[in-house]
Amino acid sequence: MSAIFLPRAMRIGAGALTELPAALAQLGLRAPAILTDAFLAGSGALDRVLGILAEAGMEARAYSAVIPDPTVASVDAAVAFVQGGDHDCIIGFGGGSPIDTAKAVAILAARGGTMRERKAPHQENVPGLPIIAIPTTAGTGSEATRFTIITDEANDEKMLCAGLAYLPVLAIVDYELTLTKPLRLTADTGIDALTHAIEAYVSKLANPFSDGMAIAAMRSIWPNLRRVCEQPGDRAAREAMMVGSLQAGIAFSNASVALVHGMSRPIGAHFHVAHGLSNAMLLPAVTAWSAPAALGRYADCARAMGVSDSGEGDQAAVARLVEALRDANRDLSVPTPKSYGIDEARWTELLPLMAEQALASGSPGNNPRIPDAETIQALYRQAWA
């Protein structure tokens, strides 16, 4: 038996942003608080959203101080902003950080308490304010997931918070919002989406519904990942990446992620590496280590991505998959932790804590091959250089 969770409504495609007022009205919503970041506020993108809403007679207030990797303090500041107005919903406009912030704020502004008390394995299912997600990156899939990640700055821990309460009621998925994304962000968010699809497919919680979404996502993402980096204005490639990212988000929201994500979060928390980039740093090594426990599943991934043909055996297909992931990191200039500039002494010193935090997240328990703390430290060392 599988339980499947999806946003109530999704509007997908070029120009979907212009349908925001109609989509809100359909849900009986009229007074959104928009949470976004300084870049989108400065680039004119936020003004465009406010203009679309104003034209439809909808009063919105905007908060543009969302930070990358939102912290307890940054979420509290956004909660205070929302409580200072009369709002019936929260819009997260941007990449994963504004959407994750919106999810946390929707609960805290309505019901109070802290994110620490809502950390996994706790399940937050009673809804707060309705959440609307408008992604501007093709990567996190957060517009379709029942998860948010908030960093507790007191101990540098990225807290995974899960439950139906974090699932947006509406997702506006307009690939035109990604056309101006810089190269590094395009590459890192693209690999993030690919990681979501692969991990959802090999997860111990995978099911036929999530499998279909994960395979479709890999078919969309892999052939277009280099293309969007080389030709940023390629609309067809941008659309494929945006749809693939959404499908991957749906897949992992209904099957969970695994070891790559469990290990990735502590790198982000301690060294402030962007989430997609820390996933990319780990994906080849973790895939190579995990694959013997689920050769057939990883071989399916290789075939869906087109790096192996249907006539090839599982072992050979998986070897091609690992090689293809390493090649992608090289071609897209994904740094190692070492070349990124992380201090080796501090990296080594933090390995036991990072391994402990990775295991505590619960994600490694969904991996086809379940590691102990010692193995996780060994994989971190392997990824270092």
Rank of each mutant, 00 (worst) to 15 (best):
S74E: 03
K338Q: 07
A385G: 15
I198L: 10
V202R: 10
N367Y: 10
S290P: 03
L20P: 12
D331M: 14
E199V: 09
V334H: 13
A324I: 03
T137A: 04
G262Q: 00
Y380R: 01
V79R: 01
R116P: 12
P98L: 07
A373C: 02
A345Q: 05
H87F: 12
V322M: 03
Q247M: 15
A144D: 03
M115E: 06
A269N: 06
A60L: 02
A9T: 14
A109F: 12
I91G: 00
Y166T: 09
V273S: 09
I149R: 07
R116G: 09
V257I: 13
T136S: 11
D309I: 03
A316R: 06
I267V: 12
H87R: 05
L40D: 00
V243S: 12
Q26P: 00
A288D: 14
A317G: 09
T145P: 00
D156S: 15
E344G: 14
M354Q: 01
T140D: 07
Q315W: 11
N329Y: 01
R226Y: 11
I107C: 07
W222N: 09
R118T: 08
Y175M: 08
E55T: 12
C89G: 06
G212Y: 04
A62V: 10
I67E: 15
F81Y: 08
M354C: 04
W289T: 06
S43M: 01
L353A: 13
Q83S: 14
I221A: 06
I12E: 07
V126M: 13
T151G: 06
P70E: 09
I107R: 13
S245K: 13
G42V: 04
L160E: 12
K158Y: 00
L379D: 01
A378V: 01
R11K: 14
G311V: 08
T336L: 12
M218K: 01
V257N: 13
P32F: 05
H272I: 08
F5P: 08
L225H: 07
V260I: 11
A133Y: 02
A328P: 06
L50G: 10
R238H: 04
I52W: 04
L350W: 07
L24Y: 05
D234N: 12
H272M: 11
R48A: 06
V75C: 10
A251R: 07
I52K: 02
E230L: 13
N279E: 05
S308W: 00
P364Y: 01
I267H: 08
V286N: 00
I131N: 09
V169T: 13
D192M: 07
L277V: 02
A291L: 03
R326I: 14
E117N: 07
A316I: 04
W347L: 08
P130H: 05
S245G: 11
F93C: 04
E312N: 04
P208K: 08
P21W: 06
L350H: 05
R30Y: 15
L27V: 02
P266E: 05
A197H: 04
V82S: 04
P21N: 07
N155W: 07
I12V: 15
P208Q: 09
G112W: 14
S361V: 00
G249V: 13
I131C: 07
A240R: 12
T114G: 02
P127W: 08
A360L: 10
S339Q: 00
A3G: 12
T186N: 12
A41Y: 03
